[in-house]
């Protein structure tokens, strides 16, 4: 459906209309068995509008059938990842006017099955994430108190805790494009995040997944994952650090820095 003949509607909460920009959006509905196609919509862009705002404008005023996923609208939830002018971005964090183009091409994230239009099925991302056991693994069932951690110990993995599971790294990854079983940068970075955590003792439990035929060694080190991460996480670095750990493990059994026992003291909060 062309939106060019539609009456211009000005949204509240934004600045004045600066110009009209064409959005070329990839449309695909697996249920109607048609091949994917691009449709164009003309959107009056006001100051401050993001790509997500524009998509919502299209959905509200031009074409109700357009499907897109979003939630927080402030770059926290990671739901609105898509390919904007050829690069993975969060739609809610991408200012339309900052792109500096009169034509904006929007595609769903790559390397995923498509549920509809701009909505990818990210179950692969979560499945891979689960494979690396993204939680602290301890021998005892329940620690008696919290573990102590120095700022330096936290610094070892701090960057990787910023992952919001938007899945854009996996979308940009060239290995994931050819190897559908590849764990992907997100899962590998989270694998490293827990191995480097001094509270964790689960290295051996993660080893089979990380050191597998479709694990850490399949990275081509293109660095695309780190380039597109909206939170500044560097999964490519985590993969290299993991390789270092696994190579060391070939000769000397890798020992995690974690304490073998939880500290036996009362917790700071007084809850034991």
């Amino acid at each position: 459906m062309e939106g060019s003949d539609m009456q211009e509607i000005v949204l509240k909460g934004f600045g004045e209309v600066v110009k009209t920009i064409t959005f070329r959006i990839r449309r695909y509905d697996p249920e109607n068995k048609e091949l994917p196609k691009y449709m164009e919509y003309k959107v009056p862009i006001q100051k401050g509008m993001t790509v997500l705002d524009s998509i919502l404008y299209i959905k509200e005023h031009l074409d109700h059938s357009l499907a897109a996923r979003y939630s927080c609208r402030m770059g926290i939830c990671g739901s609105c990842g898509m390919i904007i002018n050829g690069k993975e971005k969060l739609a809610c964090q991408t200012q339309v006017l900052e792109l500096g183009k009169n034509l904006i091409k929007v595609d769903p994230m790559g390397n995923y099955e498509i549920t509809k239009d701009l909505v990818p099925d990210v179950s692969k991302l979560f499945r891979n994430h689960e494979t690396v056991k993204p939680f602290i693994i301890r021998e005892e069932e329940e620690p008696k108190s919290e573990f102590l951690q120095t700022p330096e110990q936290r610094e070892e993995f701090a960057m990787f805790t910023d992952c919001i599971l938007c899945g854009m790294c996996l979308s940009a990854c060239p290995t994931s494009a050819s190897d559908e079983l590849y764990l992907g940068p997100q899962a590998l970075a989270q694998g490293y995040r827990y191995i480097a955590d001094n509270r964790d003792l689960g290295f051996n439990e993660r080893l089979n997944a990380l050191d597998s035929k479709h694990g850490v060694w399949r990275c081509h080190f293109s660095g695309a994952c780190s380039e597109v991460c909206p939170k500044g996480v560097d999964p490519a670095l985590a993969i290299q650090l993991l390789r270092q750990v696994l190579t060391t493990n070939v000769f000397v059994k890798f020992k995690q820095k974690g304490t073998t026992k939880a500290p036996e003291r009362k917790s700071v909060s007084g809850v034991s």
Binding site: S178, D179, H214, R218
Partner: peptide
Amino acid sequence: RVVLSEIFPGTRAD
């Protein structure tokens, strides 16, 4: 082996 297992993933193919 590395290249082929990437192009043809799967336990049987491996």
